[in-house]
Amino acid sequence: MAGAFVMVTGGTSPSPDIAARTDRTGCFRLALPDGHFTLEAHHRDAHGRVTIDVEGEMTPVRLVVKD
């Protein structure tokens, strides 16, 4: 989904309180330290949530947004 806002809502390490906007292809990028995090995506009345383990250089995340 393009134009959704993705943010960290919980985790085991600190992270900036910024929100990333998904691009035309629905992709986003957030820089996080190693640890366990909850990400949320919001777009109008739709939202989604995923928990991830970040370790190493890149952690692919699939976040599904539903009404």
Binding site: V8, T9, G10, S13, P14, P16, D17
Partner: peptide, 17 residues
């Protein structure tokens, strides 16, 4: 200046922004 929403400092050991 607000900057960190989930604690901001692991050393702080508290649920604080």
């Amino acid at each position: 200046v607000h900057a960190y929403g989930v604690g901001g400092s692991a050393a702080a050991g508290q649920d604080l922004n």
